Amino acid sequence: MDVLSDAIAVMRTGRPHSSRTVNFTPWGIRFPPSKGAGFHVVLQGSAWLLPPDDSAPVRLGPGDVVLLAHGTGHGLADHPDTPLVDAVLSPDGSWPTPPVRGPVGPDETLLLCGAYRLSRARAHPLLTELPPYVHIPARVGAHPRLRAAVDLLGAELAEPQPGSDAIVPALLDTLLLYLLRTWWLAERADRSTGWSAALADPAVATALRALHGDPARAWTVEDLGALTGLSRAAFARRFTALVGRPPLAYLTWWRLTTAGRLLRTDLTLPLRTVAQRAGYSSEFAFAKAFKRAYGTAPGHYRRAAGASAGVGRLTPAGAVE
């Protein structure tokens, strides 16, 4: 399994959205805190990012991309001193601005902005270790796949065609993965610990793929060490140093995290099946572990997820009324 894709999928809680807007000088926008992650791309013109951590403003030129992975409030403006106006968002968090058509003038900035809904209840460390913002400057010939995703998304928003409603969310998912991949590839050269280093380490990456590919298997540290060509002790030390927790502790965390996703997204799946997929031989053992991790029983967690999604009450047989 692809660990990066897996980590994003388990946090996803709804459709992403995006907009393509033009801003006339002077302009300044204050984006409120959110539960998800967001990005901005300067397609034409320039802008200043007013970071969420109150650090110095960051100038953005054409083609620059900024990812804000933690949902913190921030500003975007034509100049650091321009007053900010609160962004007026739709109830779903989208920016209700029509697509921009026609050429953009010299005193205008064309932006491509987007947001993702993510659950932070059990956020994967792949995202939690990201800095307050990730700035990827435009460089000739650099990050061609990321640039291609930006171009495709911008084109779909500028000129919607049949199928755009399905294409745009897929492109947004693609763009997020390219943003994260670009950052981690750049970071791993300068880091000896953390997830950028973990994914670059052949032994640890092999073990992570195995754990994600078959979390229900009764893994042992010896099994994982043999799989990676290391002794039990050497593998355990390396995995713990890079991932931040021992192999079997990470496996337990991942099992219960994926179980929470199954309970949220498949309200008719029997609890015994969720338990089996999470690597537990009995519902009782699973329920005990789940309650210890989440503070509530699996059934209560599922009912709360169904209520928040507007789904009917679950019957004892597991069918939705």
Rank of each mutant, 00 (worst) to 15 (best):
L180G: 09
A47F: 01
L146Y: 04
N23M: 13
A56V: 11
L224E: 03
L127A: 12
G225N: 09
N23P: 01
Y250P: 02
V3Y: 05
C113N: 12
G299L: 14
D81N: 11
A203K: 06
L4Y: 06
F235P: 02
V274K: 00
V58M: 06
D78E: 05
P316Q: 10
E129K: 05
T25A: 15
W27S: 03
A155C: 09
W195L: 12
R20A: 01
S282F: 08
I29G: 00
P162Y: 11
A305G: 12
R139K: 12
A305F: 08
T228S: 15
A87D: 05
A307N: 12
Y280T: 05
T206I: 06
A138S: 12
A166G: 10
G105W: 07
P144S: 06
F39D: 00
S19R: 11
A87E: 13
A249V: 14
P316M: 13
E187V: 06
V320I: 15
A319K: 15
T206P: 04
G295I: 12
V10P: 01
P96R: 09
S308F: 04
G28E: 02
H300W: 10
H124P: 03
P202F: 09
S196E: 03
A234G: 09
A287W: 08
R191Y: 01
D53E: 10
A205L: 10
